[in-house]
């Protein structure tokens, strides 16, 4: 080997590394700026009063976002109840039968669904649900549930596919029937992965505004009736931020801060779950 230009190559390599490090650093800057900005604007709005009161009409001081918090919680909860069983079972099917035609086409559908703009999902639900039962929390939940599906399906599938086949063989060699192998071995072993998929899907939908615009609509009063319009965090931000009043802008900043903290928390929990509960294979 010719070593005469080793010094030159070395410096080229160092240069390349520095460029990579520089850009890696660069992409964190917008994130940090956004975070700091929202925190600066929002943190001051958040207090007990803010968290437990409905918005006041224009001109009145104070007011909070409890209607949005409760509405978001209910809709995400209902969406999860609808989407998780379907998503997890579909994910199990895809990981177990990766070679079948059905798996191929449903996998394709999942990918397409993931790519569908959220506003389109909102419109579809408007035609399907809103036109029959009216603007309601339920309609919003259905829209959010559909948005959760692809994430839950894919993460379940990928988690289970990473489990070594030897695990299934171990159970089968003990005479365990197939459905028990899935329920007692495969799902528990992939639990951390499935759970973090669920967390991520919640973090994803909690900030969705578009599908809620034509479905849950929004409600400035505290409502827990699923069949009535419901407020949500992203919608409250959208609504108050686009209003001409400074009071309401503050409300929007506070809600943004809460939403941001929630998403951040979910991401951190996900990280902790995958690290702590990760099954040692």
């Amino acid at each position: 080997m010719n070593l005469s230009n080793a010094g030159y190559r070395n410096s080229k390599s160092i240069l390349f590394q520095s460029v990579i490090v520089f850009f890696a650093f660069l992409i964190t800057i917008p994130l940090i700026i956004v975070l700091l900005y929202i925190i600066e604007k929002g943190v001051l709005q958040v207090n007990w009063h803010f968290l437990t009161n409905v918005p006041k009409p224009v001109g009145e001081k104070g007011g909070g976002i409890v209607n949005a918090l409760v509405g978001s919680a209910i809709m995400v909860g209902v969406a999860s109840v609808m989407a998780l069983p379907i998503g997890i079972l579909a994910g199990i099917y895809l990981s177990e039968n990766s070679k079948s035609k059905l798996a191929y086409y449903s996998g394709l559908c999942v990918d397409i669904l993931q790519g569908v703009p959220s506003i389109v999902i909102g419109i579809v639900i408007y035609y399907w649900v809103v036109l029959t039962i009216g603007y309601s929390g339920l309609a919003g939940s259905v829209a959010l549930g559909i948005m959760m599906l692809p994430i839950v399906i894919r993460s379940t599938e990928q988690t289970l596919r990473l489990l070594p086949p030897s695990l299934k063989e171990a159970a089968l060699s003990l005479g365990v029937p197939y459905h028990r192998v899935i329920l007692k071995v495969i799902v528990p072993c992939g639990f951390a992965g499935i759970l973090s998929g669920i967390m991520l899907s919640i973090a994803r939908i909690i900030g969705e505004t578009a599908p809620l615009l034509f479905t849950a609509l929004g409600n400035s009063f505290l409502s827990t009736n699923l069949l009535k319009p419901m407020e949500s965090l992203p919608h409250v931000i959208y609504y108050y931020a686009t209003s001409p009043y400074d009071d309401w802008h503050d409300l929007a900043w506070g809600a943004s801060f809460i939403l941001l903290m929630f998403v951040l928390l979910l991401n951190i929990i996900t990280k902790v779950i995958t690290r702590k509960w990760k099954i040692q294979l």
């Binding site: 070594p164 695990l167 063989e169 171990a170 060699s173 071995v185 072993c189 099954i279 040692q280 294979l281």
Partner: peptide, 11 residues
């Protein structure tokens, strides 16, 4: 039956 790789149930 005992397999090539030890496969105790990790859970």
């Amino acid at each position: 039956m005992v397999f090539q790789r030890p496969n105790p149930f990790p859970n």
